[in-house]
């Protein structure tokens, strides 16, 4: 990596997969800008660790990604503070589940707002900055639920399938400016989001996976690191599935 670390924005970085991605990228030498509503204890610890390790620094940027109208200023301020943005990892999402017929409309709206509208608008402003630089990497965190069915996740699935379509078309749109756009599709992970997946359901997913286990957040974080790195320079518009063979 060059002497000045590349800036990478990671949304939803206070816990779960986002935190694992932030840690991995910092360990790989990137300067990580961790966007989340609040600074969780694990994120605070990760920032301190990054500082002690002397690897890529980690910064906390408090922001509620549901506030779509404030996104342009967020990006403007981050660029002012940190300089050019090399990478964007759209990870923040909510995982409301339940029978669609009984899901409150406000929950459906929240799913679409946080999982689809917000990352699209954030990407719009970040990609502009990348366009001005003529380089950049975008990784959207989708889900295997974006292309395979799971009862109780219809609305969530719609938001993740949307991000897959977004990934492919944006890759075509900005490719000739030197910007790569890809997605990762994790299978079921043990995080707060999947706490509802317990007992028998969890065992069933494990039994069905080719590798007889679940992928973990570090597996997905490794995939994100790969897509941001030089070794993935010729990869764009693709989806990297990390699910221990659940959908094989």
């Amino acid at each position: 990596m060059s002497e000045k670390p590349h800036n990478v924005l990671v949304t939803g970085a206070s816990r779960g997969l986002g935190l694992a991605i932030a840690r991995r990228l910092s360990a790989a030498g990137y300067r990580v800008i961790a966007v989340a509503r609040s600074k969780s204890k694990p994120l605070t610890e990760a920032i301190a660790e990054a500082e002690q390790s002397g690897r890529g620094p980690m910064h906390f940027a408090p922001f509620d990604l549901g506030k779509i109208e404030a996104i342009p200023d967020l990006v403007k301020n981050l660029r002012k503070e940190f300089g050019p943005l090399y990478g964007l990892v759209n990870n923040a999402a909510v995982g409301h589940d339940g029978a669609l017929a009984m899901m409150h409309n406000s929950r459906i709206e929240e799913l679409v707002r946080l999982n689809t509208l917000s990352p699209i608008v954030l990407t719009k402003y970040v990609v502009r900055a990348m366009m001005a630089e003529g380089a950049g990497r975008i990784v959207n965190v989708a889900s295997i639920i974006g292309f395979t069915g799971y009862s109780g996740l219809a609305a969530y699935a719609a938001t993740k399938a949307a991000m897959l379509g977004f990934t492919r078309s944006l890759a075509r749109e900005v490719g000739r400016l030197g910007i790569n756009v890809n997605a990762v599709a994790p299978g079921f992970l043990d995080t707060e989001m999947t706490h509802g997946l317990a007992g028998e359901q969890r065992q069933r997913v494990i039994r069905r996976s080719a590798l007889r286990r679940l992928a973990d957040v570090d597996d997905v974080a490794n995939a994100v690191e790969f897509l941001l790195g030089d070794k993935a320079r010729s990869i764009s518009g693709t989806v990297l599935t990390v699910d221990a063979g659940t959908t094989a």
């Binding site: 502009r128 900055a129 366009m131 001005a132 749109e173 900005v174 000739r176 400016l177």
Partner: peptide
Amino acid sequence: SLGLAVLVAR
């Protein structure tokens, strides 16, 4: 249109 997008960003 892409050129115009770059123009607006710059």
